[in-house]
Amino acid sequence: MNILWDFDGTLINTYPAYTRILREVLDNRISEAEAFEQLKVSFSHAFEHFQLTDKQIVRVRSEARKLQACGVVPFPGVENVLNHANKNVIMTHKERDDVWDILKYHRMDHFFADMVAGDDEFPRKPDPSSYRNLHEKHQIDLAIGDREIDIIPAKMLGIKTCLFQNHTPGADYYLKSYKDFNASFFSSF
């Protein structure tokens, strides 16, 4: 089983930090739940929803890049899933160096064979170009993400999909927690 992973909100629990940053930029005029809900759609969606100025957008992105690896954590049990895969790859809009810093800090870098990152100049999701690139190189069996936008490109390419902590219709599988993962999950492929 070869798995394509989203990074933020799927492998690493970064949304508490992103929620805090967005709220700070908006002088805490929005609730934590409201910020989280909009960020889970996408950063661009949240920026538009809250009508951020260009200056505020730059500040959010800058603060997000400054996040220290020690300030975010992997989701409990994710390493068990990574261990059961034959190959793991990442597709993220996050910058490559930031991803590797976090993975190295948490001693997870050895799990991944390849990555397409935000600074690799592929079009943003839901465009399937980055997924196609990884699929052609690694014959992806399953794409796991936490947002609908993470599974749309996989579905376009005929790759099975799994939504993590999200029950939006359209995924082939759903995982509430990696602790719920059972190796027999892979037997259905």
Rank of each mutant, 00 (worst) to 15 (best):
L4I: 08
L4C: 13
F7T: 13
D8I: 10
G9F: 12
G9N: 13
L11T: 13
I12C: 03
I12V: 13
N13S: 12
T14H: 11
P16M: 09
T19F: 04
R20P: 02
L22K: 06
L22Y: 04
L22D: 03
R23Y: 02
R23H: 09
E24C: 04
V25W: 01
L26H: 06
L26T: 00
L26Q: 03
N28D: 11
I30C: 06
I30A: 06
S31W: 00
E34G: 01
A35E: 00
F36I: 05
E37Q: 10
E37C: 02
E37K: 14
E37V: 01
L39A: 04
V41K: 09
S44D: 12
H45P: 01
A46Q: 06
E48H: 12
E48D: 15
H49N: 09
Q51R: 15
Q56T: 04
Q56I: 04
V58T: 15
V60A: 07
R61V: 10
R61M: 15
S62Y: 14
E63P: 00
R65E: 14
L67D: 07
A69S: 15
A69I: 11
C70N: 14
V73I: 13
P74F: 11
F75A: 09
P76V: 11
P76A: 15
G77L: 04
G77H: 07
G77T: 06
V78Q: 03
E79N: 05
V81D: 01
A85K: 06
A85I: 05
N86R: 15
K87T: 10
N88G: 03
M91K: 11
T92H: 04
T92V: 08
T92I: 02
R96N: 10
D97F: 03
D97L: 11
D98E: 09
V99G: 02
D101L: 09
L103G: 01
K104C: 08
M108I: 07
M108E: 07
M115I: 15
A117F: 01
D119L: 00
D119W: 03
D120K: 02
D120S: 03
D120M: 06
F122S: 02
R124D: 01
R124W: 05
P126W: 00
D127E: 08
S129T: 10
S130L: 02
S130V: 01
N133I: 02
L134G: 03
H135L: 01
H138T: 02
Q139F: 05
D146N: 13
E148V: 06
I149Q: 07
I149L: 14
D150C: 06
I151T: 02
A154S: 10
K155M: 11
K160S: 13
K160E: 12
T161R: 11
L163H: 11
Q165T: 10
Q165H: 14
H167S: 10
T168M: 07
T168I: 13
G170V: 09
Y174T: 10
Y174F: 14
L175Q: 07
Y178C: 05
K179W: 07
D180A: 12
F181C: 09
N182C: 13
N182E: 12
N182F: 05
A183E: 14
F185P: 05
